[in-house]
Nucleic acid binder design. Structure first.
Lengths: 346, 346
DNA sequence: GCTGTTCTTGGAAACGTTTCCACGATTGAG
DNA sequence: CTCAATCGTGGAAACGTTTCCAAGAACAGC
């Protein structure tokens, strides 16, 4: 534990640059930060020394003095989920272009990791925070978030006092459900994500709305939120299919769950679209190339990531101005393939 | 540009804690860092104040003084590639547990972004670096890397002076190729990643070796490295199928490319396994659920990420000791499904 | 030629920690 | 009982920047 005196760094400091150039430290700083009131000759002389020594400013020292870390936190439940990784990828590209570095914190749905990451955000004085869909029921976390006082953008989640960027999951859920109802389906199962994340609640809302507008009742037993990553979709579908009033159509998430649903169909000897209709949410290779190809609700993940990053950067730059916290919605798009049909006559 | 004097921080500093507890700053630091030689009473008194004020040390100040940023850089070409995101996910989990934060830098195959990220690593004095498969032909980058003098681990890539963690792509390529040769195939196409990344070169080496051991010549026209993310696989396969001596089997990457290959088969009116055999590298939902299901070469991505992170942490802790730079290999596993058959008699 | 402005530069004080050093108090050995 | 070692604590010097302030130089207006 006991550490020795830090060995003097081998790397040149701004003082070395100043000494070699025969100027003051403050002049070097001014030149490096492109401030006005520096003569061209000074600039040239300093930059020559900077290049020769390969000087690179120590960002911790900069952060300490200037109170800006050029760092953006990115909290996501699970970066290996392709939905998230595509959004994070686009966001990171945008941030990188603006000179920021992205600090990743994967929470894996555990509140302790969420609060731990918030603590890291505070200690490292990050300049902003990107929050991806997460559990709304985590109270310790949301209260920690509320006291954070940091530019923040929610992606597919609400953050009090901050704008959010979202796909129109409600509209998408509505469109898909209405389409199936229009085909004649009356018992439509909805397998979606965890009940406490925004895309799921919105989707369910759209699903309800479509039923209501058609004068149909909603059987909540058909709505099956899934806990994270577990293979529960398989048994859920089996249970529904073997129940007294099986669904005639299934709406499911495309990633992580579609495969389980198809397995469940197969092991019950059921085929789509003849025996049952199938729509998935989130386009994947599997949806496109399954035989028959599966109709899909999709939206632009990269665009969401980009917009979120841009919105956050605006807020970081404008400081306390620009308190427009209205959510930004992106449309979903329904791609018709060959996985749906009218329900069988009894 | 001209900034005003930084507003005095509202957040408590170690000095505030010391004052409120009526002790010296150094005592607070010692208690917080769990050093020996601190009395229990002092510990209790200080911790009480720390909790009351909600004190959190400023990590930039810590980094400046103690020369440790508790930060690990992670350079990856494209985080939206599921192969990478799964490895990064596992690595991040391991690093998080050890108290480190992961800084993500996606390079998108551009050398300028690679060197820019190395510069960020230096300026931020990161404690270690995880390098995921990248282009070996980028000379500016590799030379920048060589002068970095930082604990580093390569994942599916070689890094001079550093250990690497790799799947046995050569062995996997060998096994698959030998299997197809055993079925009687003599013209086997290999669609793999960019020529300059390690998994591809190793795979091709295994492919060659299998041919050589069977006394067969390798037709290099059948080996098709793919540039990143482009849909070139489709046209490559079409060209091969329509050529004078079409392949009787195809080995392709599972992510990003398998779908294109299947499209190419379809648009040439060709079916697997009857007309052509198909194996993919990297298991996916599509490979599992395509009809017929596709035989696959797979390996444990999460395990690679975990091992890489652990290896890096060891090196970070041990400083300059432990200069064992031997690569760590993980086995691949060939999963037989129903996509291969003996070639048709002419 | 004098009196404000505006440029250009240098000096020095922060930013918030950790760690070295010093010093008195305790403890243990002989 | 003395001397040395150890323990517990405080003071102060770093770490490497940015930015305030001051001061001289150049320049304009009268």
């Amino acid at each position: 534990m006991a550490r020795t005196q830090p060995t003097p760094s081998l790397r040149p400091t701004i003082r070395d640059v100043a000494a070699q150039a025969g100027v003051s430290v403050s002049s070097v700083s001014r030149v490096l930060n492109r401030e006005p009131h520096t003569s061209p000759e000074l600039h040239a002389r300093i930059m020559r020394v900077v290049d020769r020594l390969g000087f690179e400013p120590h960002s911790a020292a900069q952060a300490l003095r200037s109170r800006a870390s050029n760092t953006i936190g990115c909290m996501v439940s699970d970066i290996s989920n392709p939905l998230y990784s595509e959004m994070v990828n686009a966001a990171e590209e945008e941030l990188q272009r603006a000179g920021y570095v992205l600090m990743l914190g994967a929470t894996r749905h555990a509140e302790e990791r969420e609060t731990a990451f918030i603590s890291a955000v505070r200690r490292r004085r990050m300049d902003g925070l990107l929050l991806f869909a997460g559990d709304n029921t985590h109270k310790d976390f949301t209260s920690a978030l509320a006291t954070l006082d940091l530019p923040c953008v929610g992606i597919d989640r609400e953050v009090p006092g901050a704008p959010s960027v979202r796909a129109d999951h409600r509209g998408g859920g509505f469109e898909v459900t209405r389409y199936l109802i229009g085909l004649g389906h009356r018992r439509i199962a909805l397998l979606t994500g965890p009940a406490a994340v925004l895309p799921s609640t919105e989707r369910v809302a759209g699903y309800r709305q479509a039923h209501i507008e058609s004068g149909l009742d909603v059987d909540l037993d058909l709505v099956r939120p899934q806990v994270h990553g577990s293979g529960i979709a398989f048994s859920d579908v089996c249970q529904l299919l073997q129940g007294p009033a099986p669904p005639t159509a299934v709406i499911t998430l495309g990633t992580h769950m579609l495969a389980s649903v198809m397995d469940a169909f197969a092991s019950n000897g059921i085929r789509y679209p003849s025996d049952i209709s199938l729509v998935c949410i989130g386009d994947t290779d599997l949806a496109r190339h399954a035989t028959p190809a599966i109709s899909t609700l999709t939206w632009d993940l990269s665009e969401i990531g980009r917009i979120a990053a841009k919105t956050l950067l605006e807020r970081v730059r404008d400081g306390d101005q620009a308190q427009d916290t209205r959510p930004i919605y992106l449309p979903t798009r329904f791609i018709l393939r060959h996985s749906c049909a009218e329900p069988r006559a009894k």
